[in-house]
Computed example of a mutant assay.
Amino acid sequence: MDPHLLRTFVVVADHRSFSAAARQLGYTQSAVSQHIAALESDLGVPLLHRRPVAPTEAGERLLEHAGPILLRLDAARLDVRQTATPPAGRLGVGATPLAATGRLAGALAAVRRAWPGLDVTVRVDGRQAVAAGFGTGEYALALVDGVVAPSDPLRLLDTGTPGGVPVAEQPLAVLLPERHPLARRAGFSLDDLLDAGWIDADDVAAPLPELRAAARSDGPRASIRYDGTDLAALVALVAAGHGLVVLPASAVPTGADVTLVPLTAPRLVHRTELLRPRNGGSVVDALADAIVGQTG
């Protein structure tokens, strides 16, 4: 399967248009049509309906594979290039909302004192976006967080890079409005809260699919979705009574009209991990070592 043809297919499927895909890719519309025809011939099945443009059932199945395949190819290209030319001068760092803490700020301060001319860009984004950005070289380092059983690795996109280095682990709690009827409980099993309303905020709070996987029943169901990375906005939604979320206790600012009750079962933890390259160079290695060495 030619990766160039696969990339063209993904762009056409995303735009639902051959002409729009051609403009984005810098090809003629005829070339895009030829790419799709060649890919369909290779696989022996139609991948796109033409009028209107939309993936067929086989095309939907291919899209499920395409993202990880293309990401692995980009990650492999980056990994090979870095063996000869470690990045220098500019430094991109990605972090998920709950991983972008004083730990990163303190480490950056130490490294910038040693390299005062260093051009640093820090971007906060969702978990999978940060992992993908690290895999493709957008970020030299990435801090990611997630909710897992104590002995399990974080579930992130497969970028072909080494596993993350654990840098922090904390217990979890359920965030409720301060006047919630259950706010004075000493602790919760997740199964105690199956009928509660939940906020689906998988780029900030514990993702509901992971909580459902860990629960003994069908697990919590969302009553509202928060598609963002601003922790303060999420806390405000909880305070206003729109639903509950699971967070590490240290993440919630003081003074908010919310309360945290420890999550006692299932046994889960909030973990922060550092993604670092095999051959980052002196600046990247120094920042990585400073992040791992921080205590806060």
Rank of each mutant, 00 (worst) to 15 (best):
V148Q: 11
L154R: 08
L172K: 10
G187L: 07
G160L: 08
A201H: 02
L175S: 08
H180L: 09
L231V: 14
A140R: 13
L172A: 10
A205Y: 02
L237A: 10
A232H: 14
L175V: 15
S151P: 00
D195G: 15
E138W: 10
D200E: 13
Q128L: 04
P162T: 04
D191S: 15
P209Y: 06
P220V: 02
A168I: 04
R225D: 07
E178K: 12
G197R: 15
D191C: 05
D145K: 10
V174L: 11
P166Q: 05
G164R: 10
V204Q: 06
A205N: 09
T159A: 13
L237N: 01
D125F: 03
G160C: 08
A186E: 15
P207K: 04
S151V: 08
I224M: 05
V165Y: 00
P220I: 01
G187Q: 12
A149Q: 13
A131K: 02
L156Y: 01
P166S: 05
Y226Q: 04
G219W: 01
D203M: 01
H180R: 10
V167P: 03
R179A: 15
E169A: 12
R123H: 10
L194Y: 00
R179T: 13
L190H: 05
Y139V: 07
R127V: 15
S217M: 05
A206F: 08
A132D: 11
V167R: 06
D203V: 03
A236L: 07
L143G: 06
G146D: 07
P207F: 00
L172D: 09
G146L: 09
R179C: 03
H180P: 03
Y139D: 11
L154M: 07
R221C: 08
D195L: 14
V124P: 06
I224Q: 10
V147K: 07
L175E: 06
V147C: 10
R185Q: 14
S189E: 15
A186W: 12
A215C: 12
T161N: 12
A206P: 11
A149I: 07
A173R: 10
L157D: 13
S223P: 00
L154E: 05
T159S: 14
P220Y: 01
V174Y: 05
E178R: 15
D218I: 04
A233Q: 12
D158R: 11
E210C: 00
G126T: 04
G137Y: 09
V148A: 13
R216Y: 04
V204T: 12
L156K: 02
W198C: 06
V167H: 03
D200C: 02
R225L: 06
L141V: 14
E178F: 08
S189F: 02
D152T: 05
A140D: 15
L211M: 02
D195I: 00
D125Q: 08
L156E: 06
D195Q: 14
E169R: 14
D227V: 00
A168P: 02
S223V: 14
G187Y: 09
T159Q: 03
P162Q: 06
E138M: 13
L194H: 05
T159D: 14
P220N: 01
L154H: 03
A232I: 09
E138D: 12
S151I: 00
Q170C: 00
